[in-house]
Amino acid sequence: MASQERINLLAPGHRACPGCGAAVALRQILRPLGRNTIAVSATGCVETFTSPYDQSSWEVPWMHSLFENSGAVASGVRAALDVQGEKDVNLVVISGDGGTFDIGMGALSGMLERKDNVTYICYDNEAYMNTGVQRSGSTPHAAATTTTPSGKKSYGKIEYKKDVPGIVWAHDAEYVATASIAYPQDLMRKVKKANEIYGPKYIQVHTPCCIGWGFDASKTIQVGKLAVETGLVPIYEMEKGQPVKVKKAAEKKPIEEYLKVQSRFKHLFKEQERDEVIKELQAICNANIEHFGI
C-alpha cells in the first residue's frame, strides 16, 4: 500500500456531510485514474457537494450533465476527443444510483449499445440522498425512506433492489464489476483494470450514507464491510455472464447485525410480526451466498 502514489484529486473544502461514503468513493476512484482524466457527473450528491457556484473540488476537468443523460454526455465527450485525436484521455462517468438505476437508465443503455469507450461508475448509496432520502430502484427491500415510510401498515420499501450489473451485462459490456468503499485496494484495482479496457465498462460502488441510512458518521466503512460480510451486497467481476473473483467472507454474519446498526431498518425490530421480513432479507443473503459463492 505504501508504494502506491498517494495522488489526491478531490480537493478539501467540499460540502459533503461528515463521514460521507460517496466522498471516500470519489477519492478512491480518481486515484488510479490520475490527472489525465475527464469526469462527467449526473446530478446527485457528488455533483452538489463538489460544485457550489465558483468553488469546484475537482482537480481534473469535470462536466455536469442533467440527471438523465450522463451516459450520452460522456459519449459526446469521447466523440469530441476522437475528432481532436486525443487517444490517451481517461473518460469516466461518476453518477449516483438515482442517475443510473432510474433516471439515467436510457442514456446508459444507449452508451453501452454504441460501445463507446467510457468507464461508467455508479456510486450506490441506495436512495436519492441529495434531495432528502427518497426511494430509488436501488433501495433494498424493507428500508424506510421518506417516500416509503415505516408505520403500522407499512414496513418500508416493498420492492427489491434492481440488478443493474446484470442489465449492463445483457448489453454485452466489456467489463462489469461491483465494489465497495470498505475494500479500497479492490476498488482501485477494478477502476484501473476497467480503464485499460477499450469499450463500455461499468462498476457499481457500494457507498454507505450515514445521514440517509441512519448511523454514526464514524461507522461508514464498518457498515460497508457488514453489507458485504452478510452477503446482501455481493462484490464480484463478471466474465462470460458468470460472476468471478467474488469477495469471500470467511465468517458470514447474520443479516440482523447489518440491520440493527441502521435506523432505516429499526422498525423491523419493534414489532413482532416483522420477523418474517427479516427472514426474507436473510433469504436474499443466503441466495446471494449460494449464487456468488461468497
Partner: peptide
C-alpha cells in the same frame, strides 16, 4: 472555474 477552488471553504 479554477480547479480545487473549494479550498477557500474551510
Amino acid at each position: 472555474c479554477e480547479a480545487g477552488k473549494s479550498r477557500l471553504n474551510k
